[in-house]
Design a protein around this nucleic acid. Structure first.
Lengths: 239, 239
DNA sequence: CGGCACGTTGACGCTAATCAAGGGGAGTGG
DNA sequence: CCACTCCCCTTGATTAGCGTCAACGTGCCG
């Protein structure tokens, strides 16, 4: 199953080819710039593999090049909360200024990341207004996302949370135009969704069944199909 | 009542006097540094006054000098989630790299803040490794706090959430040593606590009554008394 | 005095958790 | 090839936690 998830889609980065305007791209090019090289190293992980662990000191930050990952916290009694989904092109810069991580990171699909030396990133950002701006924007986006998650968890119903999550992810992977009955490669399992939305996988199953029966959207075998975008927006996007 | 809350304690900044190692202090001193002045302006607000509004473009960031504030989101149907409590010495730097805010900020007590020009802060950070480090650490602390809130909201019981909130706040205001039966000036009302923990004020009242009856802690008229620190830690700090 | 905000308490109901059983697909080993 | 296991999903029955509604007490203020 895990292997199946990995094999079909490529999960490639949409930002790398174009490159402009992304911190991730700027850092990668940064390696070759003579005045401020950024040491970097590519790394792969298998589905469900934990690549960063809470409490571990990390002296690099990373960008996702291919595949999906999760930032999460697991309590000692087993309760787990997923904080964010990391897609290709996303940076996880929390480690830049933390001495110890307060979260872990786990691969959902087969994953390829690039690790950048913290010290080098800081050095490179320091003299470079554009880099600082990109770094700041990345932080801001990360904060916006987690703030939105907190609002979901605190004040929205199960339906709204699930729908909001799906919609935000589809928007991120498909570039903001969603057509009826379009298929999207979507590797999150119901247990991932449950831990993102603060629900149990049983209840996620019920909510998804409800959406399916209402002809709104279907998630099956790694494929998400949105039949009724209008309805999706209506349920998800109460601002 | 609102006035009462404001009058008794001073809510002064513990960081300003000492000054070292805080971004807030560094920015304030930054005004007088000839090469990189940071324009700043002091500002006051009354209890319950909204000082930043969602969707508004902000071209300054601010530090809390005196009083308590809340960062929050309010949905169009009235549901509200408080994202963070801002104490004296805290910076709210989210606006630095957001073009529009996705949250609002409201005074809890009588409030004094200092606003710093975004452009000046960026300029000042750009050339100064120590400032960059301080800014990064401030961001990291902000992220850590909201991540912890998300875990609370998603995966902890009402008792754990309330206790965790109280404990984290007491730690922040009292500098990490809590003695039995010590009183702490504590301006949060039950409705603030409810919107921080994702509960209703009715349920917060029940939870607080439970703690009070168990002889663990009491909150009354702006005074928080922790009778049994051990028990507080036990309930709150399941990592 | 009346009005209002805050807190408290009780009765009731709903949302989502828990417990449990079973189906289906994929991989494994005989 | 089939039996077996494991993981993921589904569905039903029951329960618990928290929300909702409502009433009331208190302190403050006009």
């Amino acid at each position: 199953m895990a292997l199946k998830r990995q094999q079909k889609p490529e999960w490639l980065c949409r930002k790398c080819p174009s490159g402009r305007g992304s911190l991730c791209g700027a850092l990668m090019r940064g390696e070759t710039e003579e005045q401020c090289p950024v040491r970097q190293i590519s790394h792969s992980a298998a589905p469900d593999e934990v690549i960063y662990s809470r409490q571990a000191p990390a002296d690099d930050v990373f960008a996702v090049c291919q595949g999906w990952a999760l930032r999460f916290v697991q309590l000692s009694d087993g309760r787990r909360q997923n904080l964010a989904v990391l897609l290709p092109g996303d940076l996880c810069i929390a480690a830049l200024f933390h001495e110890r991580l307060h979260f872990s990171v786990e691969a959902i699909t087969e994953l390829r990341i690039t690790r950048f030396s913290c010290a080098d990133v800081k050095k490179r950002v320091l003299g470079n207004a554009r880099m600082l701006e990109l770094l700041g924007k990345a932080c801001a986006a990360e904060q916006r996302d987690i703030d939105e998650r907190a609002v979901d968890l605190g004040r929205r119903t199960a339906e709204e949370r699930v729908m909001g999550l799906m919609l935000s992810l589809v928007n991120r992977i498909s570039g903001h135009r969603l057509l009826p009955n379009q298929h999207h490669a979507f590797p999150l399992l119901q247990r991932h969704i449950a831990d993102l939305t603060g629900l149990t996988h049983v209840h996620v199953s019920r909510v998804m069944a409800e959406f399916r029966n209402a002809g709104i959207m279907t998630l099956s075998k790694g494929l998400l199909t949105i039949a009724n975008p209008t309805e999706v927006e209506k349920i998800a996007r109460l601002t």
